[in-house]
């Protein structure tokens, strides 16, 4: 009996002493490239805030405009990422300025509830998608994994845009629309402050 217990204890100690990595935790395995793309979008306010703003604006402009932008924005984001894979580079200061401009323009459009023609709205969405997609993957070499990361970003943009636009599409009450427009003015204000930061601190502003 005592010999059996000793054997079991020896096996248990031997197993415990095996030098092996568990691979059970994300710190070892990572999230995987698709989730990396989703995380990147969700954790980057310079990406997610303009997308939400554009979606709220598209919802206020009606379902036809919202559908067009729902297709245009993720496609442009993917195109921007693909351009970044080609090795093209942009100065960091340029991307910082583009971020500030995006906040001011999109916030201003939302605050004014500007009756833009659909073509102009699509052009604005395409510009935002190209710039942000490029900025996200600038300096990243092309690989299958990075392509999946870009796909994760594109999917996030699509889903977040659709959800945010669906918030303002059914709005009819005056006060609710005003609340959204006030949010737009806050966003434009944020963009103005960002422009000041860039002016003062250059590319290292953010």
């Amino acid at each position: 009996m005592a010999g059996g217990a000793l054997r079991i204890a020896a096996v248990a100690i031997g197993l415990a002493a095996l030098p092996a990595i568990a691979h059970a935790h994300l710190v070892v395995t990572g999230m995987g490239p698709i989730y990396d793309g989703i995380d990147h979008f969700g954790l980057s306010p310079e990406d997610s805030i303009p997308v939400v703003a554009l979606a709220l604006f598209a919802g206020l402009r009606g379902p036809a405009t919202a559908r067009l932008l729902l297709a245009a924005l993720p496609l442009a984001w993917l195109a921007g990422g693909m351009i970044a894979f080609s090795g093209a580079a942009a100065p960091a200061i340029g991307l910082s300025v583009a971020t500030a401009v995006a906040f001011v323009v999109l916030g201003g459009l939302l605050a004014a509830n500007a009756p833009l023609p659909p073509v102009v709205s699509v052009a604005a969405a395409a510009a935002l998608g190209l710039v942000r997609g490029f900025a996200d993957l600038s300096g990243t070499p092309f690989s299958g994994g990075h392509l999946l990361t870009l796909a994760g970003m594109g999917a996030s943009v699509f889903v977040v845009f659709a959800l945010a636009a669906s918030l303002t599409l059914p709005l009819k009450r005056f006060w609710m629309i005003v609340a959204v427009r006030v949010g737009g003015s806050w966003l434009a204000a944020l963009g103005l402050l960002l422009a000041g930061w860039v002016w003062r601190y250059g590319a290292r502003a953010f």
Partner: peptide, 19 residues
């Protein structure tokens, strides 16, 4: 007023930031 004030204030902030 709540729509315009943050914009004007942020413009003032911009002027302050750029010196």
């Amino acid at each position: 007023l709540p729509l315009t004030f943050p914009l004007v204030m942020a413009f003032g902030g911009f002027l302050g930031l750029i010196g």
